[in-house]
Design a protein around this nucleic acid. Structure first.
Length: 361
DNA sequence: CGACGGGACGC
DNA sequence: CGACGGGACGC
């Protein structure tokens, strides 16, 4: 089956692009990249696994970095991949042969040679928006493959409201994703390939599309944008605390004595661009003079709120009676909805539910 | 008495 | 189905 076109180019291949000199000590034959690791697997567990094949020189699990404040950087979640460098090339080869495709928990890991690190492979990840909603991953790759070797591609999808399934832990069984958001990532082998794709494709109308798409460099995944969103969750009352992991506890420790902090007043939260990855809640029957801060006050106590939006009449700037709140975590969103639906605000009874797709897309 | 933006950066 | 790095050569 060709379902998995995710890894279009296998990075095991001897670098066809490199008649260039390799780094002095020939790391390209000993250094491996391991993808699709289970979320919970630690660096030590990975090292242990790969040590079963041969002596490991180094092992590095890549983790998200969470910036709490400019002077507090914490290791966050595993990004699901790691680098394992062996002392001996033969051990690396054996690891590829014996560990690639190994099933660990619910994942099939991929073990392949790491491309030599260089500036040429940095910045090769593209963010694409404005794609037709019906475009498939195959069509997407066909559109982008003329400009270089595609390492991976991914179309982002809407969340789909199937809470009972998610709670049963079945979300990994596949098939539950919602419609395309018209947004995708394309990773090329080389930065220059990505740059060529931007030059050639940005602003053009994709096949089957009705308007121009945007093709640009993707943001660096581990940067400060994420910083304050987790903070809102960790400072929230008990409802959210149950879900805190080790990183959250560290955050809590750091934030002791910061009672003063209020997400309501924080422009980085109010104006954030995190929207789209969380659970969007429709809030109806709010008064004409309702402001964003009211929604923050209402929803903040239930957990991590990513964004808040009051819909206004552009002419009068008066609220049209509804707004949207995006929360990060499904469980917290459910509790917020259950708690706030029917709540009386300034004499009006709120109707609160997950957002539906009634818009004129 | 009316009823689901706009822009989107992956867990 | 799934995001291809890495602060540090320093007392």
């Amino acid at each position: 089956m060709m379902a998995n076109s995710m890894d279009t180019v296998n990075s095991n291949q001897p670098t066809q692009n490199g008649s260039k000199l390799q780094p002095c000590h020939n790391e390209s034959k000993t250094n491996l990249i391991v993808n699709y690791l289970p979320q919970t697997m630690t660096q030590e567990e990975i090292r242990s696994l790969f040590s079963s094949v041969g002596e490991v020189e180094s092992c590095k699990l890549i983790r998200d970095k969470v910036t709490v404040f400019p002077d507090h950087i914490l290791n966050g979640q595993s990004l699901g991949y790691a680098f394992v460098n062996y002392h001996k090339a033969e051990d690396a080869e054996k690891a590829v042969n014996t560990l690639n495709g190994l099933r660990l928990q619910n994942k099939i890991i991929k073990v392949s040679y790491a491309r030599p690190s260089s500036d040429a492979i940095k910045g090769a990840n593209l963010y694409v928006s404005g794609l037709p909603k019906h475009m498939t991953q195959q069509e997407l790759e066909k559109l982008f493959c003329p400009y270089g070797s595609i390492i991976s591609s991914r179309i982002l999808h809407e969340n789909v409201n199937v809470g009972h399934l998610m709670q049963a832990g079945l979300e990994d069984q596949g098939g539950l994703q919602g419609p395309s958001r018209g947004v995708a990532f394309i990773r090329y082998d080389q930065r220059c390939e990505a740059e060529a794709a931007i030059r050639e494709l940005n602003g053009t109308v994709p096949p089957g599309g009705t308007g121009p798409m945007t093709v640009k460099c993707a943001n660096n995944p581990s940067n400060q944008n994420k910083a304050l969103a987790p903070l809102a969750a960790y400072l929230a009352p008990a409802s959210a605390r149950r879900f805190i992991g080790p990183a959250g506890k560290a955050l809590l420790a750091i934030n002791k004595g910061l009672q003063r902090y209020s997400p309501l007043a924080d422009p980085l939260i109010q104006g954030n661009a995190l929207g789209g990855s969380g659970w969007c809640i429709f809030v109806y029957n709010i008064g004409a003079d309702t402001e964003e801060s009211i929604l923050w006050q209402l929803f903040g106590p239930f957990g991590a709120v990513q964004s808040v939006k009051i819909i206004r009449d552009p002419a009068t700037n008066k609220c049209k009676g509804y707004g949207f709140v995006t929360m990060t975590n499904y469980d917290e969103a459910v509790v917020a909805i259950q708690s706030l639906n029917g709540y009386s605000l300034n004499g009006q009874v709120l109707q609160v539910s997950f957002k539906t797709n009634k818009s004129k897309s």
